[in-house]
Nucleic acid binder design. Structure first.
Length: 237
DNA sequence: GCGACAG
DNA sequence: ATCTTGTCGC
């Protein structure tokens, strides 16, 4: 992306907040897909041995078959601060994405999209920096309040409001199980995001791309073998 | 000032 | 996120 300071993750908290407000203005909340996505990349990160381990795993659609995997390890450079998660995890995830053989059509992230104090959760952050459509799927809320009741059946939704706007939808992906919070990342609208996440769940609370990215990340972080999953690891500082 | 707070 | 055993329930 143009105009992005290179070591954008090596900044002060004040500068990080400024960058978020700036980049949040580049988020597109409308569906902009040239064609139905043929591949989705599930992305996540885990921690181990002083490193952040980012994973990008590409699945074919609508089958959800694994097509490609990439893992990247980087030193932990930014602390975890609620609201600034992407400054800690995005560098490793972006590096993993760059190591993929083929760019995915859309990103499914473990975390918030615009359901964020400054409307730039990690899903939106990754979407804006890569230019790819993205969706945020989080296990809990960072901000906002659930309005209304969420039915117990799969597929039911309830809006999450914050400062006068709907920033996410609580989505029941499994009957009688805590919902996940779906939000727009970049170049998608809420309706598409919810439908997409639901398609990826298949009986589990979390979407398959995210479950796999999570499993691979933590295995890599613990130094366990992930070769039986076709990998392309790359380490850097 | 106090409490909340993605992963 | 990570540290950790068994256990209750579909």
């Amino acid at each position: 992306m143009e105009g992005v300071p290179q070591p954008w993750w090596r900044v002060s908290v004040a500068e990080a907040l400024r960058l978020q407000r700036e980049w949040a203005q580049r988020v597109c909340r409308e569906l902009q897909l040239p064609y139905p996505p043929q591949t989705v990349a599930g992305v996540d990160a885990a921690y181990g041995r002083g490193m952040v381990w980012g994973t990008a795993i590409v699945l074919e659609l609508p089958s959800l078959r694994v097509r490609d995997i990439a893992i990247a390890a980087r030193k932990e450079e930014f602390p975890y601060i609620p609201g600034l998660l992407s400054f800690r995890e995005a560098p490793a995830i972006l590096q993993a994405l760059e190591s993929l053989s083929t760019a995915p059509d859309i990103l499914l992230c473990d975390g918030q999209g615009i359901a964020h104090p400054r409307r730039l959760g990690i899903a939106s952050h990754l979407g804006v920096l890569t230019g790819l459509p993205s969706i945020g799927c989080a296990k809990s809320l960072l901000c906002g309040r659930l309005e209304g009741e969420l039915a117990a059946h799969v597929g039911s939704t309830a809006p999450v409001w914050d400062r006068g706007e709907i920033i996410a939808m609580a989505l029941r992906t499994r009957a009688n199980v805590k919902p996940v919070y779906v939000s727009i990342g970049h170049r998608v609208d809420m309706a598409f995001a919810v439908e997409f996440v639901l398609h990826c769940c298949r009986g589990y609370r979390l979407p398959e791309p995210v479950r796999l990215a999570d499993a691979v990340s933590r295995k890599a972080a613990r130094g366990e073998s992930v070769e039986h999953l076709l990998l392309k690891t790359r380490t850097a500082s």
